[in-house]
Design a protein around this nucleic acid. Structure first.
Length: 654
DNA sequence: ATAGGGTTAG
């Protein structure tokens, strides 16, 4: 059927009525054409169309209408700016807010508190704190909305501390916070885990009769949940006069993030009995809860259930579920999810795209990571960090350093994770002798070096056999995380390699004194549809006799090819012969042998280990790849090793 | 005109 022909040269008093009728039947194309044919549309007509397009998920079309006004010589009025600011907020495009802001300044409406508030909000949604600040600073009269918008802008852009400062400043300026202010500032306390300020705000809410507000209460539930105070989170929840889905979601996450999965799940079931329907976020919370509690398979199952119930996974679902692929090294499932993202959003959002590139790196395909990274339009610190870490994991320190420089050039401010990534990248690269520079790098870091930064340096010391620097790093690490066995074991290994036996045994005594046990090493690999796991001296496998016999034969062949067991790497107090035998039992050797036994015509096996690969095993697997003539990929806790024809991709720098 | 819940890197 043909649509009625479009009238032209419509007088403005008729235009609004015609436009409303068209919008009522949701014919947005026709609405746009109609609008073009209205002579001198009034501000209400313009804002009506812009708001309607935004409300129906067409913010960019809404902004285009706004842009067309200028071309038609129409000066936008305040209501038009309010509407287009909302469209910008929905589009998330900072450039468009800047354009609208500039237009508003040209029209002299930026001193209007309503327009300014809308602009601050839009800048906040587009993650542009500088813009929001500029609008704020240019204002002479500010109301509670102005203050609230600016502080929540800081909070949502990752500056919770600044958000709190604005909140305090607001009080000094005699502006009284309302429930909206409280609910938007509470997440800042949650993120910073400052229970004290949160409790003060809780008290304020009680004294000022805001405690019945469902928004404030839900924020309080999350505050207590984040500050590891589940009981109090539950108490606030129980006292609420009225609870909506969000309140339920909050209390679910409280249990999930505090390792009380069972309780969280039973509340999830109770929720529907109480007549509250789960929404998309509930499902995300449950999936995230499964993931946080190591229930990868259940997470995948819940994802299927979610879809069965008619909910579409969104970017947050994707970000939560992707680590499931990384943990299980399931490149195939990861790719399926990638395809889902491409089908639904063409490009995913920052978080899910970052999760994708991390997944590819973890599953062993650095090239796919690079492809994803290069296609990202916007890259934040986390994206850059992830790519740096991906390269470090795969031993490309040169690229990690290059990315670091490029990141600085793009004016992205590095954070402690960046430095850790770069350092661990350096420890894998062949730039020997740059260790002291790395040490200076750590000392000059604009923030207190984290345990992982020192850990990366310690790892590098092992590679370059720098005992003195190793001792310095280890000492720092023993202070920061005295109960992490990995640090003791690393220093022990470095001292052993340097043949400083007495110092090494001192470390072992220190471990005993402090009651620190070595984390048991464990390796696994997938054969067919099953994951097979091995620990040292594992005899639990059904075919363990066959496996050990095969390994014995293999070791003989390896020895003929020049392999010499290096018993320095054995921690137990046992004699040499036993040591050599114990070495053969290492979980990574068992897993690799099992993989070779079950090759089924494949030319590559992939083994994963929870700790760092042992020095002797590293050497042994090189020989295995040569003797058997296959590619063996081993991912240890730090990086990937690709063994081929007797060599490793890490060039023995690991 | 402003507001709550779900997420990424180590």
């Amino acid at each position: 059927m043909l649509a009625p022909s479009l009238p032209t040269n419509i007088p403005s008093h008729l235009g609004l009525r015609l436009l409303r009728a068209t919008l009522n039947v949701r014919d947005f194309n026709r609405a746009r054409q109609l609008f073009d044919n209205i002579l001198q549309p009034d501000p209400t007509t313009c804002s009506t169309l812009i708001s309607a397009l935004t409300a129906h998920g067409l913010p960019n079309e809404a902004i285009n209408i706004f842009a067309s006004l200028r071309a038609r010589g129409i000066n936008p009025q305040k209501p038009v700016f309010l509407a287009v600011a909302k469209a910008c907020a929905a589009s998330g495009d900072a450039l468009r807010v800047k354009e609208v802001h500039a237009d508003a300044a040209r029209c002299g409406v930026t001193s209007d508190v309503f327009v300014a508030n809308a602009l601050i909000h839009a800048y906040g949604k587009c993650k542009c704190v500088e813009g929001a600040r500029r609008v704020f600073d240019d204002l002479v009269v500010r109301d509670v909305v102005t203050w609230t918008s600016l502080s929540s802008c800081y909070v949502n852009c990752g500056f919770p501390r600044k958000g709190l400062n604005v909140f305090c400043e607001m009080g000094w300026n005699g502006v009284k916070p309302n429930p909206v202010t409280l609910s938007s500032i509470l997440p800042a306390c949650s993120e910073l885990k400052i229970l004290k300020s949160g409790k003060a705000i809780h008290g304020f809410a009680v004294r000022h009769g805001m405690i019945e507000n469902v928004f404030v209460c839900s924020a309080l539930v999350s505050l207590y949940a984040k500050c590891l105070s589940v009981r109090e989170a539950r108490a606030v929840f129980d006292l609420m006069p009225r609870r909506d889905v969000v309140s339920w979601n909050g209390v679910l996450t409280a249990y999930f993030s505090n390792k009380e999965y069972e309780k969280g799940f039973s509340l999830f079931l109770q929720m529907s009995r109480d007549g509250v329907k789960a929404d998309e976020a509930t499902w995300n919370a449950v999936i995230g809860g499964c993931m946080e509690n190591g229930r990868t398979e259940e997470a995948v199952e819940m994802l299927r259930k979610m879809q069965k119930m008619g909910f579409k996974p969104n970017e947050i679902t994707i970000s939560s579920i992707l680590p499931a692929c990384s943990f299980s090294e399931s490149l195939r499932m990861g790719m399926e999810i990638h395809c889902y993202v491409l089908r639904h959003w063409k490009v995913g959002d920052l978080t899910s795209t970052t999760a994708l590139l991390y997944m590819y790196a973890k599953c062993g395909d650095l090239n796919l990571s690079r492809n994803v990274f290069n296609m990202m339009r916007r890259k934040d610190v986390v994206a850059w960090n992830t790519m740096i870490i991906a390269n470090a994991m795969h031993g490309d320190g040169k690229e990690a350093l290059f990315l670091f420089d490029k990141m600085l050039l793009s004016r992205i401010k590095p954070n402690p994770v960046t430095f850790t990534g770069v350092l661990s990248g350096c420890s894998h690269s062949s730039r020997a002798g740059h260790l002291n520079e790395a040490y200076k790098f750590i000392q000059r870091m604009p923030m207190e070096p984290t345990a992982s930064a020192w850990g990366a340096l310690l790892g590098a010391c092992r590679v370059y056999k720098n005992v003195e620097l190793a001792k310095i790093s280890a000492k720092k690490l023993f202070e920061i995380e005295p109960n992490n066995p990995g640090n003791y074991v690393s220093l022990f290994n470095i001292l052993v390699t340097a043949k400083l036996w007495s110092e090494a045994s001192k470390i072992r005594i220190l471990m005993k004194e402090r009651g620190i046990a070595k984390t048991p090493g464990c390796s696994w690999l997938q054969v067919g549809n099953r994951v097979h796991t091995f620990v040292v001296g594992d005899k639990s496998n059904m075919e363990s006799d066959k496996l050990y016999n095969f390994l014995d034969e293999l070791v003989e062949k390896m020895k003929m090819a020049g392999y010499k067991p290096d018993t320095d790497y054995v921690l137990q107090d046992i004699d040499q012969e036993e040591k050599a035998e114990s070495l053969c039992n290492h979980s990574e050797k068992l897993a690799v042998s099992f993989g070779i036994l079950n090759l089924n015509g494949q030319s590559t096996i992939r083994v994963f280990k929870n700790l760092r690969i042992c020095g002797d095993c590293h050497n042994a697997i090189k020989y295995m790849s040569k003797v058997v003539g296959i590619v063996i990929v081993v991912r240890d806790s730090l990086r990937f090793h690709h063994f081929k024809n007797g060599n490793c991709s890490c060039k023995d720098l690991w």
